[in-house]
Measured scan of single mutants.
Amino acid sequence: MAASAHGSVWGPLRLGIPGLCCRRPPLGLYARMRRLPGPEVSGRSVAAASGPGAWGTDHYCLELLRKRDYEGYLCSLLLPAESRSSVFALRAFNVELAQVKDSVSEKTIGLMRMQFWKKTVEDIYCDNPPHQPVAIELWKAVKRHNLTKRWLMKIVDEREKNLDDKAYRNIKELENYAENTQSSLLYLTLEILGIKDLHADHAASHIGKAQGIVTCLRATPYHGSRRKVFLPMDICMLHGVSQEDFLRRNQDKNVRDVIYDIASQAHLHLKHARSFHKTVPVKAFPAFLQTVSLEDFLKKIQRVDFDIFHPSLQQKNTLLPLYLYIQSWRKTY
């Protein structure tokens, strides 16, 4: 089996927390979720979201995140109150960019949308954001926290390059993509939290790379249903696996070995980020709550012996909000 052949990389499970039942964490995340308004986002309300009498641009960002990046939404709820709305805006910006690729039928249209967001970032730093909910909220975040323009532009530029429907040539190319998107998002989150620390940035770099790799793995069944495969070609070739094997949902050992190798790289990034947690300011830990969902996925895929098409991998963990709150309460990542 794939797991038994390579099992030495995987460390002990961390979500089991001995003695936790003896201490009762304060009510927090679930209460916040219940208090949030929840009407559906419609095209009509989106168009009017920044106008008078609408929910408001902040509510639009929150709803977009809740629907399109639920794990990011849950993590954002546990940030300090003064930072929450800015991170909602930042993550909503990322969602807007991420959904361009799947929402257009022609690359030219995707490039036009990316050009809109490039100009939007430029206009935000000229205090002239367009009348668009996410743009307005992002402008507020930039003004409030003096966010670095370079990180925002890196996210747009990398998403634009990724409009080509090509597999990553190697794991390094996937890591570079993750660094310029997910890690950049974390650098900006640290700025919102008021953290300027080399060790925190180092952790953000590795956690962002782990996030990018896990996202690529999780999306494999969806991409396969659209006749697309984006997994690193070098690892596929190493194990003699073709793109057609993934399109046919082949579950042979060599296919699972490909998934094992890729998942192991995410695991190593996560492990390395945690190896120097004592040197990272505690104030930075809330920015890294996504490690909970990353670890949850890596454990699940290990349990199914790296069968990327196993139905259990597509099921939401209903206990994730609780695990996130516990992680926040324990002040760790």
Rank of each mutant, 00 (worst) to 15 (best):
S103Y: 14
D245E: 10
R256N: 07
Q132V: 14
W151Q: 07
H131G: 12
R256P: 03
D245T: 11
S50D: 05
G224F: 11
I301V: 13
G72D: 06
V214R: 02
N146K: 12
A178H: 01
M237K: 06
E122L: 13
H272A: 08
D102S: 10
I171N: 04
P286Q: 08
V95S: 14
L217R: 01
F285N: 12
L319W: 12
A141T: 15
L289C: 07
I124M: 07
R91I: 01
D197Y: 02
R159L: 06
A141H: 01
L163P: 06
R226P: 03
R249E: 12
D307H: 05
T215P: 00
K166G: 14
E71Y: 07
L77C: 04
L78P: 10
E175A: 03
A49C: 15
A284E: 00
H239S: 03
V241R: 03
I136K: 15
V104E: 07
L186I: 13
M233I: 08
L65Y: 04
T215L: 13
D69P: 01
D197G: 03
G51D: 13
W117M: 05
E173C: 06
S275P: 05
I171H: 04
G72K: 05
V100S: 07
Y260M: 07
P311C: 06
M233L: 10
L111K: 09
S205Y: 05
I171W: 07
Q182F: 11
G51Q: 12
K253N: 11
E63P: 04
Y60S: 05
K67E: 10
T279H: 10
L319G: 06
R169C: 10
K283P: 12
L320D: 02
S275R: 11
K253I: 13
F230D: 09
D127M: 05
E179H: 10
D165F: 10
H272M: 15
H202N: 05
G194Y: 01
H239N: 09
N170H: 11
I207C: 04
N254W: 05
K172D: 12
T220C: 15
A167K: 04
P133T: 08
D165E: 13
A54Q: 13
Y187V: 02
V255P: 04
Q327F: 05
D157Q: 12
A49L: 15
L77M: 07
L74C: 12
N146E: 10
Y73W: 15
F230A: 09
L138S: 00
Q290W: 10
L298E: 02
K149F: 06
I136Q: 13
A266K: 00
A263L: 02
A135I: 04
S45N: 09
I136C: 11
L190K: 01
C236F: 09
L185P: 00
F276R: 06
V95I: 14
R159P: 03
K107Y: 11
G224P: 04
E160N: 15
F285M: 14
K154N: 11
Y125K: 02
V87M: 11
L319V: 12
T318M: 13
S242P: 09
G72H: 12
V156G: 03
K166V: 15
P311D: 11
R218H: 12
K300S: 12
E179T: 02
E137Y: 03
L90Q: 04
F230N: 12
L147R: 01
M153D: 09
D234T: 04
K196T: 09
S83I: 13
A48D: 10
W117N: 00
R169G: 12
I207R: 00
E82K: 15
Y125E: 04
L320P: 00
D307M: 02
L198D: 05
W139P: 01
R303G: 07
M233Y: 06
C216K: 02
A203D: 00
Q314M: 10
L320I: 07
Q243G: 06
P133C: 09
P311Q: 09
L74Q: 03
L247Y: 04
Y60I: 06
E96C: 10
F93D: 03
E191C: 03
M112I: 11
R91M: 06
A203M: 03
Q315T: 11
G53Q: 09
A81I: 12
L79R: 02
F285K: 13
S275Q: 10
F230Q: 10
G72Q: 12
R113V: 07
V282C: 08
E71T: 12
S242H: 04
W329T: 08
D58G: 11
A287V: 12
Y60Q: 06
L186T: 07
S50I: 07
W117D: 04
L320C: 03
V292K: 09
L74E: 01
E63C: 09
K331M: 12
D296L: 09
F276S: 07
P286S: 09
H202P: 00
M153G: 07
G53F: 14
I192C: 15
H223E: 15
L298G: 02
S105F: 15
V134I: 14
I301T: 06
I192G: 07
Q99T: 12
Q115S: 12
L270P: 00
R159I: 05
K278P: 12
L289V: 08
Y168C: 12
G240A: 10
Y73H: 04
N180M: 14
R68Q: 07
P133R: 08
K118L: 04
A92K: 01
Q314A: 11
K331Y: 10
F288E: 01
K331Q: 13
S264N: 06
S264R: 08
L77E: 02
A98W: 04
N146R: 13
P286V: 09
A200M: 01
L320R: 03
D201N: 05
R84P: 02
V292G: 08
Q302P: 01
D307I: 03
K154Q: 09
Y323Q: 15
G72I: 07
A273W: 01
V280M: 07
I235S: 07
A135Y: 01
C61L: 12
N146T: 13
K143A: 08
I136H: 14
L147P: 02
K300E: 14
L294T: 12
V255T: 13
H59R: 10
V280S: 02
D257Y: 07
L186C: 09
L97P: 00
M114K: 04
P321A: 13
N176G: 14
P321M: 06
H277S: 12
V87C: 14
L79K: 05
S184A: 12
V134L: 13
M112C: 11
L298H: 03
A210G: 05
M237F: 11
Q182Y: 15
V282L: 10
I301W: 00
L147E: 00
L193A: 03
F246R: 02
Y260S: 05
R113K: 15
I262A: 03
K299N: 11
Y187P: 00
D296P: 01
V142L: 06
L270C: 03
K209S: 02
P281T: 06
N180K: 10
Y222W: 15
H131K: 14
K283E: 15
A135K: 00
D245R: 08
L111M: 08
K107T: 12
S225N: 08
K209A: 03
Q115P: 04
L231P: 03
V156W: 04
C61K: 03
G194D: 08
G208V: 01
E122F: 06
M114V: 11
D69I: 00
D157E: 13
Q302N: 07
P129L: 08
G53M: 13
W55T: 15
C75K: 02
G224C: 11
Q251M: 15
A47P: 04
S103T: 15
Y125H: 05
T148V: 04
Q251N: 15
L313R: 00
Y73G: 00
H202Q: 06
K271A: 15
P281K: 02
G208Q: 01
Y177N: 06
T220A: 15
A178F: 02
L97Y: 01
L65S: 09
R249F: 12
I195F: 05
I259L: 03
L152R: 01
E191Q: 15
I262H: 02
T148I: 03
T148G: 08
S45G: 09
H272K: 14
Y177T: 09
L320E: 04
L174R: 02
I259E: 02
L185E: 04
A219Y: 04
V46F: 15
H267F: 12
A81M: 15
D164Y: 15
I235T: 12
E175F: 02
M112L: 11
A284G: 08
P221F: 07
K209W: 01
